[in-house]
Simulated scan of single mutants.
Amino acid sequence: MPLVDWDLATSTAARLGPTGPSVTLSEATAVVADLRRCAEEASEHVAAYTRLVPQLADAPVAVVDRKSWAAENVAGLRTVLGPLADKLNPKIGNVAGAVSSKVAGVQAGTLLAYLSGKVLGQYEVFGNNPGKLLLVAPNVVAVERKLGVDPRDFRLWVSIHEVTHRTQFTAVPWLRDHFVAEIHQFVAATEPSRQVWQQAGKMLDAARGKDGVSLLDAMQTPEQKAVLDRLTCIMTLLEGHAEVVMDGVGPSVIPSVSRIRASFDRRRAAANPLEQYLRRLLGVELKLKQYTQGRAFVAKVIETIGMDGFNHIFDSPQTLPRLDELSSPQSWVDRVAA
């Protein structure tokens, strides 16, 4: 019996996901073609700026709608969370397992439905090796219209960010396996019967909107906390690197990049109260902080020792930043680059 009813998760995400902006068939076709062109152009700019050389074939580009984005993520989650089902099934009875599987399916689908209306692009690494680059066309169109920015400039700007993630995983062959191994270790530390009441209390705090508490915080064991710290370091590095690259490449190829960046940052910060609550509850706030902290870390390291010196960060898992080094870039430089 699967831990999560993935078919139910897929159907729930499709049913609850928001509708996209109004476009004609010809407009939709043009957007898809333009995003593909932007991804291809972005690859050249990212390679020149980062000096990272892909060691694996470039992952495919898929321009998708919100429903397809959710389905791609369900497929990836099904792959990476399979070991968790094997671990927990012996501890859960048939009836309880069936109920919990349905509940988890609805929860996963609801979360993906929410995110499907927010994500502009993603490098999905779980479903296959080395991964797949996803660009969510309706969200890109919706945001560029809301911000009132030049569509071509905005699409290239978004593509540079996501292509940077593809470059990271194709230029650093060990990175995907290491990332997936950490996810598996997080899964292996799951103890379904441990600290039930303590976790229930934390989940209540998350539901109440208590600062610094998300559902992810509430549901993790102490062992998982150690793994999550390492995962946080990886994700903060990768997001920060992508932010630095998109801002570094932008001025030379995107005429309106300064306006786009200013408008986009205002959009990130200006969430309504319900949006802010959902961000805290689901841990999305952590993602937003990763952009800021990661960008500051990467920019400072590059400023200190240059791009070639920074690229030593991808030499091995041991050269990745530690949690305390994210707020002290010089500590990483002293430990690794020196």
Score class of each variant (00 low, 15 high):
P2T: 13
L8V: 14
A14V: 13
T19R: 15
P21L: 06
L25G: 13
S26H: 10
E27D: 13
E27F: 06
E27M: 09
E27V: 11
A28T: 09
A33N: 02
E40W: 11
S43N: 08
E44F: 11
V46W: 10
V46N: 03
A47E: 07
T50H: 07
T50C: 11
L52S: 09
A62L: 12
V63G: 00
V64D: 00
D65A: 11
R66K: 10
E72C: 12
N73A: 03
V74S: 00
A75C: 02
V80K: 11
L81S: 09
G82K: 14
A85Q: 12
K91I: 11
G93I: 06
V95T: 11
A96P: 02
A104G: 11
V106W: 09
L111C: 05
G117Q: 04
L120R: 09
Y123E: 01
E124L: 07
V125C: 08
G127C: 01
N128V: 15
N129L: 01
L134P: 03
V136Q: 04
A137E: 12
A137T: 05
E144H: 13
K146F: 02
K146E: 15
D150V: 08
D150L: 07
P151L: 07
P151D: 05
P151H: 03
W157N: 08
V158Y: 03
S159Y: 05
I160T: 13
I160S: 04
H165V: 10
Q168P: 03
A171V: 04
W174E: 02
H178K: 09
V180N: 00
A188C: 07
G201C: 03
A206R: 00
D211Q: 14
D217E: 10
A218H: 02
V227P: 01
L231N: 10
T232K: 10
T232A: 10
C233S: 13
I234M: 12
L238M: 12
E239Q: 10
H241C: 02
V245Q: 03
M246R: 15
V249M: 06
V253F: 04
S258V: 05
R259Q: 15
I260D: 03
A262M: 09
A270V: 08
L278E: 00
E285C: 01
L286A: 12
K287H: 14
K287E: 08
K287Q: 14
L288N: 09
K289I: 02
T292E: 14
V298L: 01
A299T: 15
E303T: 04
I305V: 15
I305G: 05
M307P: 01
G309I: 11
N311M: 04
I313P: 00
Q318F: 08
P321M: 04
E325K: 10
S327K: 14
S328G: 02
P329C: 06
S331C: 02
R335I: 08
A337T: 04
A337L: 06
A337P: 05
A338R: 15
